[in-house]
Simulated scan of single mutants.
Amino acid sequence: MGAEEVKQFNVYLPIGLIKQVKIRAVETGTSLSALVAAALSAYLEDPHRQQQPPTEKET
Rank of each mutant, 00 (worst) to 15 (best):
M1D: 06
M1Q: 07
G2W: 03
A3T: 08
E4W: 07
E4F: 13
V6D: 07
V6Q: 14
K7I: 09
K7Y: 07
Q8P: 05
F9N: 01
N10P: 06
V11K: 00
V11W: 04
L13Q: 01
P14T: 10
I18H: 03
Q20W: 02
Q20P: 09
Q20D: 04
Q20R: 04
V21K: 00
V21S: 03
K22C: 10
R24Q: 13
R24Y: 15
A25K: 04
A25F: 00
V26I: 09
V26T: 12
V26S: 14
E27S: 12
G29W: 02
G29I: 10
G29K: 01
T30F: 08
S31Y: 07
S31G: 09
S31C: 09
L32A: 14
L32M: 13
S33C: 15
S33I: 13
S33E: 12
A34P: 03
A34D: 01
A34H: 02
A34C: 05
L35I: 04
L35S: 09
L35P: 00
V36L: 07
A37N: 11
A37C: 10
A38L: 11
A38S: 13
A39M: 15
A39Q: 15
S41C: 11
S41A: 12
A42P: 00
A42I: 06
Y43R: 04
E45D: 15
E45M: 08
D46W: 01
D46K: 04
D46R: 00
D46Y: 00
P47W: 03
P47A: 06
P47T: 05
H48W: 11
R49P: 00
R49S: 01
R49G: 00
Q50Y: 04
Q50G: 15
Q50M: 15
Q52I: 08
P53W: 05
P54K: 01
P54L: 03
E56H: 13
E56Q: 15
K57M: 04
K57S: 15
